[in-house]
């Protein structure tokens, strides 16, 4: 497995993601520079968190036009695996690779804290090692993480089992109080219909090592390896 982490100017979780893939998961990983027109033969593309191109306009709005994203879009269209975290998720919705949009948090503040998320489907490569209903503590850190889509899209997400994670309370119950940012139906992560493009607002790479006192997020990376290497 060869992973590629896209580096936009303004990405700031790129090195964290590389660290986890390389040093924790022991996988080959390369940086994919935003100006380049190649994915260097990667099997799996990761879009990291951060503020691509400053995100002064709208998160991810500029990044979708970058040279490397044209390659990522083509790769995804051919069925290649693409996973965006936080700003990466925002870029995927802006690019049209995932449905919906990420609006400003309902309290109009940036929020960085641990949240509980609940796995909604085990039928995806990033949740394959979870049980449905299983809870994980994973941090969020965003100003625009309020997932929104129209009714038809929401219906489709549900019909096709595309909702990966929802925000929940410490007992695994999905409640309005446990929704940190106002996301529609507490949605924290989704995939596309074809199930090869994934996005989530919480940062699993920030919860993947014992030294940080929380390795709940590691299960997501283990799921990826589990799905793709045994498949």
């Amino acid at each position: 497995m060869k992973f590629g982490v896209v580096v936009f100017p303004g990405s700031n979780c790129d090195q964290d993601l590389i660290h986890v893939v390389r040093d924790v998961m022991k996988q080959e990983v390369v940086e994919l520079w935003h100006k380049d027109h190649t994915l260097q033969g990667c099997d799996f593309v990761l879009l990291p968190g951060g503020f691509s191109y400053g995100d002064y306009l709208r998160s991810g709005a500029i990044a979708r036009f970058s040279p490397v994203m044209q390659e990522v879009i083509e790769f995804a269209d051919k069925g290649g695996m693409v996973f965006g975290i936080c700003n990466g998720f925002q870029i995927l919705t802006e690019s049209g690779l995932l449905p919906g949009a990420l609006l400003h948090n309902s309290n109009h503040q940036f929020i960085c804290k641990n949240v509980n998320i609940r796995c909604e489907t085990d039928e995806s490569i990033i949740t394959s090692k979870f049980k449905i209903g299983q809870k994980a503590v994973v941090p969020i850190a965003h100003g625009e993480g309020n997932y929104y889509c129209d009714d038809a899209t929401l219906r489709e997400l549900k019909e096709n089992n595309q909702i990966l994670f929802r925000y929940c309370d410490e007992n695994g119950k999905v409640t309005p109080e446990s929704n940190p940012n106002g996301a529609l139906e507490n949605i924290a992560g989704i995939c596309n219909k074809r199930r090869n493009v994934f996005g989530m607002m919480p940062h699993p790479e920030r919860a993947s090592e014992g030294i940080l006192g929380n390795s709940d997020g590691k299960k997501i990376f283990e799921s990826i390896l589990n799905s793709l290497i045994t498949a």
């Binding site: 090195q15 940036f110 929020i111 960085c112 941090p139 790479e205 920030r206 940080l212 929380n214």
Partner: peptide
């Protein structure tokens, strides 16, 4: 105050959970 600051980027903050 501090939830408005990203305290975890860089994944070296060992006091988040302790």
């Amino acid at each position: 105050v501090y939830t408005q600051y990203d305290s975890m980027v860089g994944t070296i903050n060992m006091t988040t959970n302790a």
